[in-house]
Amino acid sequence: MRRSADTGEHDRLHAPVSDMNDNLSDEALMQGYAGGNVDAFGCLYERHKGGLYRFLLRQCSNRDVADELFQETWHVLIRNAASYRVTAKFTTWLYRIGHHRLIDWYRRHQRGALTGYGDPGRGAGIEELATAASGQEPETSLGNERLQARFIRALDELPAEQREIFVLREETGMTLHEIATVLDCPPETAKSRLRYATAKLRARLGDLYESA
């Protein structure tokens, strides 16, 4: 028993850095990076890159813009790593930065606050997103594509605030409280926006999502 405990301790101490990081929380990893551990950042990036990228992509519907905003978001995080304090969840902080990048981008391009999800002329539009869900049989692929296109169009028709909350919820699994923190709005507002978004999507896709 004693021997196995010693062996476990030995393994833990001599485990590769990346293995050790895998068991750490986001907040601990961020603190590790603030202390100079680049591997911790790598682990953090791997955990959150997909969710953040899709969040930004679904908001601006343009791959180039999403790339730019994604990069800016991580650069802001890197710049402010030294001042990071564990006062909230890391994801809240990360998506808050992303949300602000989005707002800034929309202000710069005078597009109004978070409007226009679908923009076929600007790169990754509905079709691109729909075909991204690949790997299906040719026969079912056509049906799925149609289904996904309808879903994305319905998502696109949502008001930007409602769409943002819906996507945040789906991508991160945050609670409404955390979403409210990210979006700088009262939790009740976040809750009602999500309820409206869900109701609208149900109304438009009622015949589809039940079969999904």
């Binding site: 890159k49 997909g50 990228y53 899709r54 992509l57 691109e128 997103l129 729909a130 991204a132 869900a133 799925n144 289904l147 996904q148 879903f151 994305i152 789906e170 896709l205 589809l208 999502y209 999904a212």
Partner: peptide, 10 residues
Amino acid sequence: LYRQTGADRQ
């Protein structure tokens, strides 16, 4: 439905 629409985009 959401998971089917480009949920693996990176």
